[in-house]
Each structure stands twice: as C-alpha cells, then as structure tokens.
Computed example of a mutant assay.
Amino acid sequence: MTQEPPQFDPACLTDINCPVTGAMDWEVVKSYTAPPDGETDFGITPYRRDLLRSPSTGHVLNHHHFDLSGLYSGDYWDRTYGGGRMAQTYDKIMALPPEQSDNRQRVAYVQSVWSTYGPRGGDRTVLDVGSGLAVFPSAMAQAGWTATALDPDPRSAQHAMEKAGVEGMVADFMTDTVSRRFALVTFNKVLEHVPDPVAMLRRARPILLPGGGVYVELPDGEGALAAVGPDREEFFVEHHCAFSALSYAMLARKAGFRVQRLDRVIEPSGKFTLRGYMMPEETPQ
C-alpha cells in the first residue's frame, strides 16, 4: 500500500483526541521513518508514523495517516499462515510446557478469575473474538469449557474446527450479529488492533449470559516504555494504541464494564501485558 507521509506538526498534538481516554495532552515518544526491527513489512511507502504518549493517562497512540483497513485481508493470511504454517505454528504453541507458554498461563489466569467471580455451577461457554490460531479456545476446551473461536476469515474458522477441535464461527464482530449468549467473552490482544476499542468491547455486553464477564488482554505500553523503550512489538504499526493500567480501566468504564481484577505481567515470550477480568455495570437480561 502506498501512502503520503503525514506532515506532522507538534503544535497540532492537542487536536488528537483519544477514543479510549479523551486525553489530548500528547508528547512525542519517537518518530519512525522505517519499520523497526521485527515489525511485519506491510509494504507501506513512504513510511512515517509518530508514537505519542499522554502523561496524564499513560496511554500510547500510533499517529499516522496510513489506511490499515485492509491489513488483515487474504494476503495477510496467506503471508502469515499459508503453506501449512497455521497448523505448524498451532502445534508448536500447544506443545510448549506451561512455564514457557503465554497461552497456558492465560488459561490458568482465566480459570482463576472465573473461580472467584463466575457464577457457581453456571454455564461454561466461551467466545474468543479474533481467535486466529485458536490455541486459546483449544486450551480452554481442554480445561472443560465449551469454546467457540470467532474469526472473520473462513480459513481460521475451518482450522479451529479441524485442527483445534472447537467450534469455528465466521463473523466480523463489529458488524455481524452474534445471536447466542456466552458465559465468557475473551479478547486476547485484539482491541488494540481496531480504531475504536471502546465500541468493540461494548458489543460484548448483550451477548453475555447473566453473571458472565469478559477477559481482556492488552499490550502494556506503560510497562514496556518504562522498562525497555519504544522499539517493541507493543508499539508496532498494526497496533492503534498500547495501554496503561489507568487507560485499561477507562476503556472498561467507557464500554459499560467494571474491572474486577487487573494484573500487569511479563509473559514467557517477553511481551509486556495487561490482563484482567471485567463484568457489566448492569448485567444484561
């Protein structure tokens, strides 16, 4: 994709309104004229983006004029998973021992929060939004859940059914109607990929069963900047934003949820992550 580089004017920082926090007090963390090491080459030329941080909220934004609407098209799927790589990557992740697996530790965390906040003896159905490889719903199924993997690409849904052994649902969560309800809806490193994460999270409310909740995992931009710096995957171009503990809570509240638990972790893969469990302010009927 070819884009015109933005004519960035630091004086215009106060014109940038954050969809999550409403913050307008931005400072430039770093300006990029080429993809940093490790970032997928999406063919964006010329390449110019600015990483911004709000001191009042700790929230981080990627500011650019790229059109990323087609980023996860069939070409992306082919480049990432074609030639049998989806099955190979799935097998590799599922074979990792728990102490080396982000996924197994994620499942253990969800099991822990559900034992505390979930209804006793209730339904154990989970909808994983943007499931991709379906490693999480597969591991949840192994832990006794009835898991559904939702992804807009039919090939991912087919992989979920044939390889991961769970139900695959082909849908765009932002535009399609999910006609069933679930005890748990999960967003594993998904909300940072959309322009309006509040709107996406809000769509989980009407499909929750009474007493149900939402697990949300997001890149910890605050932690990554403090510990390492900006040249990290938490801030790659495909992420519209990265979060702080405060902006995580603001996201939940703006979407109509209350945070029951929030933890900051460094995963076995080295990712800086905020993971937490939230419930609707008013349980939908």
Rank of each mutant, 00 (worst) to 15 (best):
residue 249 A to K: 14
residue 257 F to I: 05
residue 269 S to W: 01
residue 256 G to Y: 07
residue 241 C to P: 03
residue 250 M to Y: 03
residue 271 K to A: 07
residue 274 L to F: 02
residue 242 A to N: 10
residue 272 F to T: 02
residue 270 G to N: 02
residue 260 Q to F: 11
residue 248 Y to M: 10
residue 246 L to A: 15
residue 242 A to K: 09
residue 259 V to D: 10
residue 241 C to I: 10
residue 252 A to M: 13
residue 244 S to P: 12
residue 253 R to F: 01
residue 255 A to S: 10
residue 258 R to H: 13
residue 244 S to D: 09
residue 264 R to C: 05
residue 252 A to E: 05
residue 272 F to A: 05
residue 272 F to P: 00
residue 243 F to V: 13
residue 252 A to R: 05
residue 260 Q to W: 11
residue 273 T to F: 01
residue 262 L to D: 10
residue 269 S to N: 02
residue 266 I to N: 04
residue 248 Y to R: 06
residue 240 H to V: 09
residue 263 D to E: 15
residue 266 I to T: 13
residue 273 T to L: 02
residue 261 R to M: 14
residue 267 E to W: 00
residue 247 S to E: 11
residue 244 S to E: 09
residue 264 R to P: 01
residue 266 I to Q: 12
residue 251 L to H: 04
residue 256 G to K: 06
residue 267 E to N: 03
residue 272 F to I: 00
residue 258 R to L: 12
residue 256 G to C: 06
residue 247 S to V: 11
residue 268 P to A: 01
residue 257 F to T: 07
residue 256 G to V: 09
residue 266 I to C: 07
residue 248 Y to N: 06
residue 265 V to L: 07
residue 262 L to G: 08
residue 247 S to K: 11
residue 270 G to D: 01
residue 257 F to D: 04
residue 272 F to K: 02
residue 262 L to R: 12
residue 261 R to V: 14
residue 251 L to E: 04
residue 273 T to M: 02
residue 272 F to D: 00
residue 272 F to R: 04
residue 251 L to K: 03
residue 270 G to C: 01
residue 260 Q to M: 15
residue 269 S to F: 01
residue 241 C to H: 12
residue 266 I to A: 03
residue 264 R to K: 13
residue 257 F to W: 07
residue 265 V to D: 08
residue 261 R to I: 13
residue 263 D to Y: 07
residue 247 S to D: 11
residue 252 A to P: 05
residue 266 I to W: 00
residue 261 R to E: 15
residue 262 L to W: 09
residue 250 M to W: 06
residue 244 S to H: 12
residue 246 L to I: 13
residue 242 A to H: 10
